[in-house]
Design a protein around this nucleic acid. Structure first.
Lengths: 146, 146
DNA sequence: TTGCGTGCAAACTGTTTGCACGCGT
DNA sequence: ACGCGTGCAAACAGTTTGCACGCAA
């Protein structure tokens, strides 16, 4: 098996505690409140290891950052097209591949990834003009050079 | 409308000429053979503009690089899980969203992205042990420091 | 002539990795 | 005692952008 260090434990714990599907640096921010000296590299490394062990799930979604899910069972996700936040979809994925299997392709199809797009609860109630992307860059200010 | 510069034209032309769904720098390599002084930034800018106009399609797939498709009509794609190359799927996407629409979610679902995974013709005939990722890094050697 | 589009380089984001050290087993 | 896992920083890949200039309309 693998060693359960304090860092690993806190990372896993915080991932489970969060509602949602945080990116590595969102998780880093939370973990840092409990382990101020942890490094972002460690967070990445541990998420990778935990995902490799099947303890957590790495989300293979389109769009910028990688996200992680404390629930390792396969299920679908929705991504908010305004703020980028991700939610779960309650729908049984089994059998979908057979159902949808394309009739002709030179590729040998082995799997299917489905990703829904939509508006999260917060963004759908908001008049369209308001500043978006709050979630995506919440912890980092974009610096412009000179 | 938008200005049709030579660069724009060549980029579009090469995208149409390629069989496949090239990344920006794959396209850059081809375009450079006709316009040696073009810059990668220009390729990105033009691909963005052309996609914005609906002339071409930007692929919203999982996994590393962004890819582009000369065909702007919506259709599905397969990604080779070994080499990363992308193929088309002949399957009518219309109606799929309604068919698959999840019954409950706090998100307001507006769209669905489907991506098939599989093995491309070349990789599926290859004994599993052989060096993969040929396509993904074809034009760039990975440098290690020190 | 005007200003959009280019080439260039540098900055930026997200992720990975070499290294030395220190902690868990 | 050993070696895995850490913190740190730098490197990396992919993409974007400020700037000055030049070409298309």
């Amino acid at each position: 098996m693998f060693r359960m260090t304090l860092q690993r434990q806190v990372i896993l714990d915080e991932l489970r505690r969060v509602c949602g599907h945080p990116t590595a640096d969102q998780l880093y921010d939370r973990v840092r409140q409990r382990l101020p000296r942890i490094s972002l590299g460690t967070v990445y490394r541990n998420l990778e290891i935990l995902a490799g062990q099947g303890v957590i799930q790495r989300l293979e979604l389109a769009g910028g950052q990688r996200r992680f899910d404390a629930c390792a069972e396969r299920h679908f996700h929705v991504r908010c097209s305004v703020c980028g936040s991700v939610g779960d979809i309650l729908l049984d994925p089994r059998g979908l591949l057979n159902e949808m299997l394309p009739d002709s392709s030179e590729f040998q199809i082995t799997d299917i990834h489905v990703e829904f797009m939509g508006l999260c609860p917060e963004c759908k109630d908001r008049p369209t003009a308001v500043a978006p992307t709050a979630e995506r860059h919440s912890t980092k200010l974009r610096r412009k050079h000179s």
